[in-house]
Amino acid sequence: MGNLNFRPLWRYQDAIIEGIITTLWLTLIATLAGLIIGTICAVVLRRGPKPIRYLIYTYIEVIRNTPPLIQIFIVFFVFPGFGVRLDPFPAASIALSLYFGAYASEIIRSGLDSIPRSQVEAGHCLGLSSLQVFVHVVLGPALRNIYPSITSQIVLVLLGTSIASQISTEELFHTAGFIDSRTFRSFEVYALIALIYVLLVTAFRLLFALIGRVAFRWPTRR
């Protein structure tokens, strides 16, 4: 039984903070890019030409049925094959964006599907333009329906950024390995890093709950 000593870790607070910032950047980039990819895919899946629909379907299934660790390796190694050297951070951003994009498109698609046709027709009857119908009648309620699943998927992306450490992106988990190799306080290092992840996740959940409460106030709850 060893004794606990967190003191040697204190010197590495700058590294830890930088790791957290990189982790948050990765999460933000993957979230935004993934939402864009997901929205485009979901819309094209509804009314795109058939070959493109099959392409998107393949993309979604391949991403969802292979480990993200392998995906990140493939993205990291595919570019040197074409003679382009890609740094770990952009490679990780691309891999995580593609990863979240696949899940986001499934979620967004289910959100769009959750709006009954009659509701769209009702919108047209009220004299709204097609764009107005899409924004106010389809997108708004759909967003409210998918908000819980999208946000919990974003939390999973936050946790998933840890695998970016495996292509030596210097995010939070990479920092853990770095500090461990300097201090040999493995127990304390991994306990601390795990705690930081828990705090980040909790902060994200609270933030999403708050945003959800403000953004989806209208109309009153069913």
Partner: peptide
């Protein structure tokens, strides 16, 4: 547990 990456759980 849901707040800890699986990777961190393994390393721990």
């Amino acid at each position: 547990v849901q707040g800890i990456p699986l990777l961190a759980l393994l390393m721990f």
